[in-house]
Design a binder for these strands. Sequence first.
DNA 1: AGGCGGAACGCAATGACGTTGCTTTAAGGT
DNA 2: ACCTTAAAGCAACGTCATTGCGTTCCGCCT
Lengths: 190, 190
Amino acid sequence: MSPKAKARPGGRSARVQEAVHAAVRELEAEQGRAKLTVPAVAARAGVTPSTIYRRWGDLHELLSDVAVERLRPEEPPSDHGALRADLTAWARQFLDEMASPPGRAYIRDALLGDPDGSNAGQCSAYAAGQVETILARALDRGETAPPADTVMDLVVAPMMYRILFRPDPLTAEYADHLVDTALAAPDESA
Amino acid sequence: MSPKAKARPGGRSARVQEAVHAAVRELEAEQGRAKLTVPAVAARAGVTPSTIYRRWGDLHELLSDVAVERLRPEEPPSDHGALRADLTAWARQFLDEMASPPGRAYIRDALLGDPDGSNAGQCSAYAAGQVETILARALDRGETAPPADTVMDLVVAPMMYRILFRPDPLTAEYADHLVDTALAAPDESA
DNA sequence: AGGCGGAACGCAATGACGTTGCTTTAAGGT
DNA sequence: ACCTTAAAGCAACGTCATTGCGTTCCGCCT
């Protein structure tokens, strides 16, 4: 399981976790990925390396932890008054953030140090949550909306696949195209 | 660039490369991922560790190299006489292989030690090649077939997304469903 | 066919990293 | 306020990653 599920959430443990996460972000910004090492992070955080090894296991799991936190959406998707507009805006922003070099790095980190797949699942859950918010809003308006799984398959999955497996640049028009496909699909629930 | 693009393809270099790759496969099968370390691989391959470090950089790049080789399809997709049958059979087999624990491990390895994304691109190119073979066969028969990119977006991408980001098990019915969607989509070229 | 340049490998040393047992601290419950 | 116990500090050890230098052998050119 993920080390973030702390049995002792308060006080020193929380301070250490925050200090370590901050140290990772700072060192990454200052010196780049190459200089990121457990002893370096520990020194910056004012902590001994063994603490990091015990709590996170290794550098990859720590980076995965930090990456997932960075991939968490900070606010619900903006409301443009109609399903298509909401989905299009969200997909464009999602693609823009995820396809950027830092975004790609976070995604890779999140996938990388993740033995049981829980961190990757968390990322997917974040995106699914945003999508569900948009779809629920549409249903509230009386619009017809496809199931969330359909949007995940037709919009999110293709974007992530191209981000991960293809070096080509991705455009906002591609996001629009995927939204078109998803909204044209029949509302099946399989 | 990938180290597989050897400037000196013949003789000793080739023997070393093959010995190292074989050593990785053997050790992985015998002792699992945990015991896989550069010195161990080097010892099994009858090579000094520095050789591996020089040629591949680190363990991740070596594993990525081996993983890509394993993900290469060994034969063209089987011909069932009709587009839907061909696509369905191929998607089922693809999902079965990729979603298995070893398949997931190879995918992760391929993505992991891949600074410039060339190995991941190679994986995608393998799948795209198989898909294009199926589609070309369909066009030869006089069938109408969607563009390859559509199939990649609607069939391959969702499968890979779920494999990577969701822990849930995946079924052959899911592959069938994706093929249905792809074949129902309008033949647009965007 | 034979020699030549250069790339790749082997060897060995070094410094950093990952790992672990024991001790110390402090959080949370009684 | 004490007591329990999870979590962090400390320190030492083994292993791994990295690099300079000498040697081998591939590929090519005459």
